[in-house]
């Protein structure tokens, strides 16, 4: 293989990293294959399922739709960075306590998307939660316990607001 490679420098979960990648390599593949961060999953590689969701420069991104080389200089957060050592984040803990995962394949994507949502200044209402989380697919949980988990985490973090309607 003689495809020329490009060196990408970025920050992943607070650590400066470098990867030599071919320009056509997706950011998801770069994380998984070059940086060995396999917590970011690929469920479709065409931008629909959201399993590959990570946070890039403060925004949720489908890492299957971005090239590795586009991450030059970026601040990246993945599921591996959510826990603080042994301590799970409140959202991770809520997923555990509310049975918000079964096979766990979609879970990293949901965790990253919901982590981003919970960090935004606006409060989380049921409508907003449904609106945001409906961009990812889960085939096991029927979403019911994902909603319960994210709601519980939002309440614990003081981010929950009852809907105006209803």
């Amino acid at each position: 293989m003689s495809e020329p490679k490009v060196t990408v420098c970025c920050t992943v979960n607070g650590q400066k990293v470098e990867a030599d990648v071919v320009p056509r390599m997706s950011l998801a593949d770069m994380l998984r294959e070059e940086l060995h961060l396999t917590g970011t999953h690929l469920g479709c590689e065409h931008g629909v399922c959201g399993a590959c969701t990570i946070i890039v420069n403060g925004a949720p991104v489908r890492s299957c739709l971005m090239f590795g080389i586009q991450a030059e200089g970026a601040e990246i957060r993945t599921v591996e960075g959510l826990a603080d050592g042994d301590t799970l984040s409140p959202l991770q803990r809520a997923f555990w306590e509310k049975h918000g995962l079964q096979c766990g394949f979609c879970t990293p994507g949901f965790l990253m998307l919901a982590t981003w949502m919970l960090e935004q200044p606006e409060p989380v209402t049921e409508e907003r939660l449904r609106h945001v989380l409906s961009s990812n697919l889960c085939r096991c949980t029927g979403y019911t316990n994902i909603v319960r988990a994210v709601t519980a985490a939002a309440k614990e973090m003081g981010k929950w607001a009852e809907s105006a309607a209803a």
Binding site: R32, T38, G39, E80, L82, L88, F95, W96, L101, L111
Partner: peptide, 16 residues
């Protein structure tokens, strides 16, 4: 579930 901690931390071992 006993299964959950590695899955929540991105430490699963799926086929890929």
């Amino acid at each position: 579930r006993l299964e959950d901690p590695p899955l929540l931390r991105g430490q699963g071992r799926f086929a890929a």
